[in-house]
Design a protein around this nucleic acid. Structure first.
Lengths: 111, 111
DNA sequence: GCCCACACGTAGTCTTGCTACCTATGAAGG
DNA sequence: CCTTCATAGGTAGCAAGACTACGTGTGGGC
């Protein structure tokens, strides 16, 4: 699917993924792909700048760790990030309800 | 709500509004505001360029009519536009389902 | 030894919606 | 009569955000 449509919701997705536990950038991409069943396959050029944005905003904190000689920067949610996520969720609900009104009912998520 | 979040879905909204009948630009803005209960209050600088985009793409056709000495450009859906709308609807469903998976279930639209 | 998957990152482009501004008419109010 | 407001259409330039393309470096498999 056109990831372009994410516009403005990407930050929320990243926060949501990190909500389940700290991950490093590459793992975030894989988590997004896995949980969306392949629908979200975001390039690194999308993820890393977004993570820096979130870090500048104080919503995530990063720390370097060397695993198998491999440098990995692990990101985790801050309290501010958790609050932001709650807001993003509310925003998403309003947005999807509003747009859904025009584009047909938002289908209830299947179990 | 932040209309900025529309990004990429505005065209679909416009097509959806015109689906119910031809309207002129100003009326489209009012229809969006009315049907969304005020949530969508889009400026003319957003609507008119978008309509021209849709016209260039062949999804809408416009015709001038003078009503009470007032120039009104009425837009209506073309067949191509109807097909595009169907595609946009499908895209929206996929998009909202995917994002909803991360941001909590998309709430079923209230009756 | 070479290539691929892993892992991080930046620069520049492109789309798209927004702000700010301009034009013009008809009706209402002073 | 003149000003102001709602209606009605439109453009130029800005800003945000995601993408493409590129660049760096390691470890493991062939």
């Amino acid at each position: 699917m056109k990831a372009q449509a994410l516009h403005g919701h990407l930050d929320a997705l990243l926060l949501a993924v990190l909500e389940r536990g700290a991950l490093h950038g590459y793992a975030i991409i894989e988590a997004l792909r896995a949980r969306s069943e392949g629908a979200l396959d975001l390039p690194t050029g999308t993820i890393y700048p977004a993570l820096r944005r979130l870090e500048r905003a104080g919503h995530v904190a990063s720390s370097w760790s060397t695993v198998n000689g491999r440098e990995r920067r692990t990101y985790e949610l801050t309290d501010s990030g958790r609050r932001a996520l709650a807001g993003e969720r509310a925003g998403w609900r309003e947005f999807s309800a509003t747009v859904g009104q025009f584009l047909g009912d938002t289908p209830p998520a299947p179990a």
